[in-house]
Amino acid sequence: MKRQAIVMNDKDNVATAVTDLQKGLEAVVEIKSQITQIAIQEDIPLGHKFAISNIATGEDIIKYASVIGQASENITIGMHVHTQNVMSLRGRGDKVIDGRDINE
């Protein structure tokens, strides 16, 4: 049977939709070998991510068991996780002020 979403690693806090998921859908997701249902809060296009746990501002977004960015606002379970609420931590020339990286 075709799945709706995939979690790449047990340590991840996001799942990736492998088909278009509509708001209000109870998406079936396998998390740590358990079949779980997650209420989708916004439309999630194929390939886009949604939270499988609540993630507070400043917390790491984890995919492939690695940090892929940081939450720029509070994200609740079932919300779309993308550029509108995730900051990249790498290659941020826009964060360099007077030659100094403000992240460092």
């Binding site: 390939g47 960015g69 990249s88």
Partner: peptide, 11 residues
């Protein structure tokens, strides 16, 4: 296509 950051793309 859903890739949010360079970190995610690279991994």
């Amino acid at each position: 296509g859903g890739l949010t950051t360079i970190e995610e793309k690279s991994l």
